[in-house]
Amino acid sequence: MAFGDVKTAQGLNDLNKYLAERSYVSGWVPSQADVQVFEQVGKAPAGSLPHALRWYNHIASYTPAERKAWAAGASPLTAGGKPTAAPAKVEDDDDDDVDLFGSGDEEEDAEAARIREERLKAYSEKKSKKPALIAKSSILLDVKPWDDETDMKELEKQVRTVEMDGLLWGASKLVPVGYGIHKLQIMCVIEDDKVSVDLLTEKIQEFEDFVQSVDIAAFNKI
């Protein structure tokens, strides 16, 4: 559809009918065709022309600089206010518009993929920086002396001299076992990957002048 002088009642009426099923004068986005018709109309159409009024107010909401930046578009205005030729077929315009929107979808998909990759990368980096869980165990040892004449304070002192990477000594106490003999119960925490329980007990038993035997009274994973 082409229409002539939009400054006349007939021209405005034709414009109103033209915009009844369109958002813009040409295509699916505002263009220079809208600017041309907007400038020709000059002022807001009457309320009896709702489609033309809606379009005019929408175009007017943009600044002159924004309107100047719009791409060219096929104008339905005709020279001298008289129709001279029909505009391009709607089907052709639709095809062009579909291509444009298709490109937009591809750009949006690419952007969404980029954001997803960035988030996955950030999550992986955060996870890699998270300290690994260290497996530990809490052990209660029973250290038995030879007899009631064994110096238990010295025995404990000797036991605590055992140092291993991943070994931490804790609280201790003397527990009577009978006939005036006491055994040393001592707590320790070990890192499972660094400390062998068997090696630990062997090192304690090396204090032969004080230690008769070493038993594990309790063993708990932390």
Rank of each mutant, 00 (worst) to 15 (best):
L200G: 08
L200F: 10
V98H: 04
Q212R: 09
L100K: 03
F38M: 04
E206G: 14
P30M: 03
L100Q: 05
N13V: 14
A2M: 12
Q40Y: 13
P145D: 01
A71P: 02
G180R: 10
K194Q: 15
K194D: 14
P50E: 10
K68D: 10
Y18I: 07
A69Y: 07
D148T: 01
A46N: 13
V6H: 04
H182V: 11
G47L: 01
S23W: 09
S26P: 08
D34M: 04
F219C: 03
E106R: 14
A113P: 00
G166F: 05
L140C: 05
D165S: 13
G102M: 15
D151L: 11
D148Q: 06
E154V: 12
P76Y: 01
M152E: 09
P76I: 03
S172M: 06
V195A: 07
F210G: 01
I204N: 08
S196K: 08
L184P: 08
D109K: 14
L120C: 00
Y123H: 03
S172G: 02
E208R: 07
S138A: 14
D94A: 01
G180W: 12
A9C: 03
I216D: 00
A72Q: 01
D96W: 13
I134A: 11
Y18N: 07
K127L: 11
A52T: 06
T63F: 02
V90P: 07
L184S: 08
A44N: 11
I190R: 08
S172C: 05
V35M: 02
A9D: 14
A135F: 06
V143E: 06
M187G: 11
P64T: 01
G81R: 02
S124M: 14
E118P: 00
W146Q: 00
E156G: 08
S213W: 04
G104D: 00
W28C: 03
K130N: 12
T201K: 14
A218E: 10
P145S: 00
G104Y: 04
Y18S: 07
L140F: 05
W28F: 09
L155S: 05
K194R: 15
T161S: 13
F38W: 15
V177C: 01
E106I: 13
L184E: 06
D96V: 13
A122S: 06
V37F: 07
V162Y: 04
N13T: 15
D94M: 00
V162M: 02
A44W: 11
V177M: 03
G4C: 03
A135K: 12
I204E: 13
I139E: 03
L120A: 06
R67T: 09
M164N: 05
G4I: 00
K126C: 04
G73A: 06
E118A: 14
R67G: 10
E125R: 04
K89E: 08
V90N: 03
Q36N: 09
F3M: 03
V195W: 11
P50I: 12
G166N: 08
V177P: 02
G178V: 05
M152A: 09
G81E: 07
P76L: 04
L200K: 02
S128Y: 01
S196N: 12
R116W: 03
L100W: 09
P131C: 02
P30A: 06
S138G: 14
A46T: 14
A60F: 05
C188Y: 09
V143Y: 08
Q205K: 12
V159L: 03
K130C: 12
S138Y: 12
A60S: 09
V41K: 10
P145E: 01
Y62W: 15
A2N: 15
L141S: 01
D165P: 00
